[in-house]
Design a protein around this nucleic acid. Sequence first.
DNA 1: GGGAGTGGAACTGTCGACAATCGCCATTAT
DNA 2: ATAATGGCGATTGTCGACAGTTCCACTCCC
Lengths: 245, 245
Amino acid sequence: MLDNDSPQFETLSIVNLRERIKDRICDAILHGMFRPGSRVVEATIAEQFGVSRAPVREALVALEREGIIKSLPRRGYFVVDFTDKDIDEIFSLRRLLEVEALRRAVGRFNADGLAEMQRLVDQLGAAIRGNSDIARIIELDLSFHDTICRVANHSRLYEAWNSMRLQTWLLIGLTSRIKFDSPDQPHDIHQTILDAIKAGDVALASASLTRHLVDAEALAHEAWRTLHNEAAPRRRDDGAAEFRP
Amino acid sequence: MLDNDSPQFETLSIVNLRERIKDRICDAILHGMFRPGSRVVEATIAEQFGVSRAPVREALVALEREGIIKSLPRRGYFVVDFTDKDIDEIFSLRRLLEVEALRRAVGRFNADGLAEMQRLVDQLGAAIRGNSDIARIIELDLSFHDTICRVANHSRLYEAWNSMRLQTWLLIGLTSRIKFDSPDQPHDIHQTILDAIKAGDVALASASLTRHLVDAEALAHEAWRTLHNEAAPRRRDDGAAEFRP
DNA sequence: GGGAGTGGAACTGTCGACAATCGCCATTAT
DNA sequence: ATAATGGCGATTGTCGACAGTTCCACTCCC
């Protein structure tokens, strides 16, 4: 047997190169290395990762299924560019899936899970009050929702939701500057949801969650508009740009 | 401009080889060429299709996202083998998605759509009364549900549902012999749902649809047990078996 | 006789190269 | 001047080969 005390025992290294590349590309897209609608060129990615094109291609096929890139045959892959209908779809499906996840998760939370949720709510409140950048806020917010979906203990529901999570992040997380003055003070809404979960009040929790997601959808519409306006000056598709491997 | 009257203007041929192979493999699995849990070997598929392994690999990555095969790193791909929890998940998610799709679809149906639905219901009734094989019945049944989901006009919801469709087919469609004596006479339930859609009665349609899916879940459990018992004698994983390219 | 070690076969993971196709741009004819 | 056309570069689609890993069966030693 191998000794486990090797300093960087990389459990992840048994996973396919494809999966690691997928995660890296995913991160790169989600961190704004690619503009929405811009090309994702196999050869460029492969070169920057120092691998051949084969695993990159497979990663791209997987990412297309996750809904953040789109392939045009014989043309290449492009970061998705959302329309208003897409945003409607993403959030209506999120509402459907998350409310169901919540229904299942209430009663399944243990002390640790609730403590984690409370910590996320606190950090989120601090981030909002401290005017942290939108990316940080969205990340914490999505972690809150992610926890609910994970605790629901429904792998297929989680899988479907996770796809929407990536697209949501792409929608809002890329926007660097946006006024975050939701009328309902998101911090409170998260605390309200969590309190309802703790009290086992599914109806209240669901209603609050739904309201929160409706607010988030409005934010997403605004964020996407903002992002497009920011991008408007540059007319050329600036392709892969920097993109640290 | 090209003249459109060329006899075999094959619009489909612009699609990736990967996509065509994906569909072929998918068909092969869904038609029982592979047993649940059996290996899906790249080289074998590639050879039988007369192509190299590259597009096959990409097709397999896509199919894994569709939920009918599963990859074990460095081990290969296997046709999924469901547990009771998987069946619960598949049908609980189907209920969630289809009821929402129904809610959206009611009011969006036009005359053609309703006629198509009626035709499906009639064919389904004939198939059941005529004791057609289960595959035919499941196919018609899933087409009925598919139509609802398509008319809902929600691409992400449809995508999520389609994944469950494939898995449902894998669950039930492979079973060659199973007594089809559902207590609620499925034909009637489909007609009930369709009538409610025509009447615009969302509540009744949803309730009927939900009840139908609960019945279907019971059938799926039974079908899967049957399939496993059928497969039990053969202990060796018989791999790719025949599988016509 | 049984368990650990060992050798080989089969399969996946990865790579580099070639072929096919698409978009862009200059060129040309009307 | 404008629109069609042909060539060219860039990028994807596909292929065959090699390397690494896993599993299985066999052997050998205790």
